[in-house]
């Protein structure tokens, strides 16, 4: 049996599907989040070197993972939209960007909160934090460019180019910042540097990462629905939908 995937790739037919999926992803996110927080606060042992303060890694590390992962996924969808002229994939990319920026911001914020007890300052030019900061600027660039262009199709295409250029650059930036960091400060204490990562720590982090993942999908779908309605507001199916609701 073959499934006609293109049937689902039209905004009109994806809109109701997205609506039905959202509650599932949100519930999964909530359940995983509860489980993850339980593991991280009650199961995971206190770290010998860093005390209780280390527990922030259960937020920080998954957020940092998601921030990079979402950028890559976003660039991939934007690239598909540019190459095959599929509107829905470009909309997915635009819907992902704010979530990605938020994850980056959380990673920066928690990194800074953790830095205060560990280094005694709110900000240290540590390789991970510095590259997260630049990633945040990349997200802002993508979003500002799309916001500055009125024609949605042109905004999609322009955003795709900058996202693809960015995705080639992300590893280069990460590598260069790491190189710069070792040259200037020597090895500094890193969030991930626990000599032996206890098993509950790892599990807690993975569960939290999964929770963030589910949340990102749910948030993306909600934003996607809003974008679809906004762009297609003059089409017949949106007008019919409005009439049914009122």
């Amino acid at each position: 049996m073959t499934i006609n995937w293109f049937r689902y790739s039209s905004p009109a037919s994806f809109y109701p599907i997205a609506g039905r999926l959202i509650p599932w992803f949100f519930s999964a996110a909530a359940l995983l989040m509860l489980a993850g927080l339980y593991i991280s606060f009650f199961v995971a042992p206190t770290d010998a070197q860093q005390g209780e303060a280390y527990r922030i890694i259960f937020i920080h590390v998954p957020a940092a993972w998601m921030s990079m992962f979402i950028y890559i996924v976003m660039a991939a969808w934007a690239g598909i939209g540019l190459a095959f002229n599929t509107r829905l994939s470009s909309m997915v990319a635009s819907a992902l960007a704010p979530t990605g920026a938020m994850m980056t911001f959380i990673a920066l914020w928690t990194g800074s909160l953790w830095g205060k007890p560990m280094w005694g300052t709110w900000w240290v030019w540590d390789a991970r934090l510095t590259s997260e900061l630049i990633l945040l600027f990349l997200y802002f660039g993508f979003m500002s460019l799309q916001a500055a262009i009125d024609d949605p199709r042109r905004a999609d295409k322009a955003g795709a180019v900058i996202a693809l250029v960015g995705v080639i650059n992300v590893p280069i930036i990460y590598f260069s910042v790491k190189w710069w960091n070792t040259l200037h400060q020597g090895a500094s204490v890193s969030l991930m540097q626990s000599p032996t990562m206890a098993k509950p720590m790892l599990i807690g982090m993975l569960v939290m990462a999964l929770a963030f993942w589910m949340y990102s999908i749910a948030a993306m779908l909600m934003r996607l629905r809003a974008i679809i309605i906004e762009r297609e507001r003059n089409s017949d199916w949106v007008k019919a939908l409005k009439e049914r609701q009122s």
Binding site: I134, F137, L138, F140, G141, S144, L145, A148, I149, A158, V161, I162, V165, G166, N169, I172, I173, F175, S176, V177, W179, W180
Partner: peptide, 28 residues
Amino acid sequence: GAALTLGVRGGGALLSLLVLPLYVPVLI
């Protein structure tokens, strides 16, 4: 960046936002 911001509102400031983060490795 220069080509992407052609005819776009707030071109100059936007251009720096797009381009400067990408310049980081060269600077380093």
